[in-house]
């Protein structure tokens, strides 16, 4: 099995899907000759030409609306929005267009497009280039949202996303692009809507996605030293949620801590927490805890940015409170 960086795994998925399906095309800012500012589309313009791998002007609102309508017209667009912080510019196309047509037009149209973007803090990129806006996209009915934590999932989920008959928002993380790990050799996909049990444990379920999975694993190591056996669940799909895996885990551990890099109020962790309350109230021995960003913009200066980003310290503390 080959070891690839997360960015390379995404690149391979794009290449294979473009080879497989001539309807797939890529567009976005700086993705063509430069190969993307995070190098995810490197080499693809050379291989597939400038018609199928298109550099665009800075026009996120229009580009997203075009992805929706081009998909409706029969193409399979994959749009790159350079930073998740620019997602607010795409929202009319997602909320008032993509989200409504399939249902309102009574299944006459389909919109098989993928919107790839990357978020997350920790790179000193400041308040407009560091956000995690999971809840913003996961909030929208009619859209799927995935957030891979590993090269394997980046590869397998992107292939599934491109093949999916509906819109998929694909959330990458800037601090994961250089992570190197195994990726299957074959044309294996990872299904949308399935979580992954990353580490088994009996005392508490730590539920996370994207980079927070790795922070949760560090926390679990530390907790093991204190005699607390933490289970770590990687959601992979933010919407739809894999209820079976979540409920199975909580039924075993009776405690849950939800970790999300985004804001707290009306945040993604709040949704998971409420979902557990809806379905697993009888299994829970303590209220579900949340570990998130505080409700602040992400500051630039290193000590400030470090203070607002959730990490192992915050996760360990939340677990201790929960199982106490």
């Amino acid at each position: 099995m080959a070891k690839l960086r997360y960015a390379e795994a995404l690149n391979r998925a794009l290449r294979e899907e473009m080879q497989r399906d001539p309807l797939v095309f890529l567009f976005g800012e700086d993705i063509g000759s430069y190969g993307g500012v995070f190098k995810v589309t490197r080499g693809l313009m050379d291989e597939f030409g400038a018609a199928r791998v298109r550099d665009t002007p800075i026009s996120e609102q229009t580009l997203t609306a075009m992805a929706v309508s081009a998909a409706m017209a029969g193409s399979r667009p994959v749009l790159e929005i350079m930073y998740a912080d620019f997602m607010p510019l795409t929202l009319d196309a997602l909320i008032n267009q993509a989200s409504i047509y399939e249902y309102i037009w009574a299944d006459q149209v389909r919109m098989p497009f993928v919107l790839r973007t990357q978020g997350g803090g920790g790179a000193g990129a400041g308040a407009q280039h560091s956000k995690s806006l999971d809840s913003l996209v996961a909030h929208i009915p009619g859209l799927k949202a995935v957030a891979p934590a590993t090269p394997w999932d980046a590869y397998g989920l992107l292939k599934s996303a491109i093949r999916d008959p509906g819109p998929v928002i694909f959330l990458e993380h800037k601090l994961l692009y250089n992570m190197r790990d195994e990726v299957p050799d074959g044309e294996e996909t990872v299904p949308l809507g399935r979580a992954r049990l990353v580490r088994e444990g009996t005392d508490v379920s730590i539920i996370a996605s994207s980079r927070m999975v790795h922070e949760s694993l560090l926390a679990a190591d530390r907790l093991a030293g204190e005699g607390i056996a933490a289970e770590v669940v990687d959601l992979r799909s933010l919407r739809p949620l894999d209820l079976d895996t979540l409920l199975g885990s909580v039924a075993r551990t009776h405690h849950a801590v939800v970790v999300n890099e985004g804001w707290r109020f009306c945040g993604y962790a709040a949704e998971v927490s409420a979902t557990l309350m809806d379905h697993a109230f009888d299994d829970l021995d303590a209220p579900v805890a949340r570990v998130t960003m505080p409700d602040l913009p992400i500051p630039y200066s290193e000590p400030l940015e470090r203070a607002v980003l959730p990490g192992p310290d915050e996760i360990v503390a939340a677990v201790r409170r929960t199982v106490a």
Binding site: G124, G126, A127, Q128, H129, P297, P299, Y300, S301, E302, L304
Partner: peptide
């Protein structure tokens, strides 16, 4: 440089 003495107390950074 993200210092307390900056115009925005290090919160903004060079772009803001």
């Amino acid at each position: 440089l993200g210092k307390e003495t900056g115009y925005c107390r290090g919160r903004a950074g060079h772009m803001l």
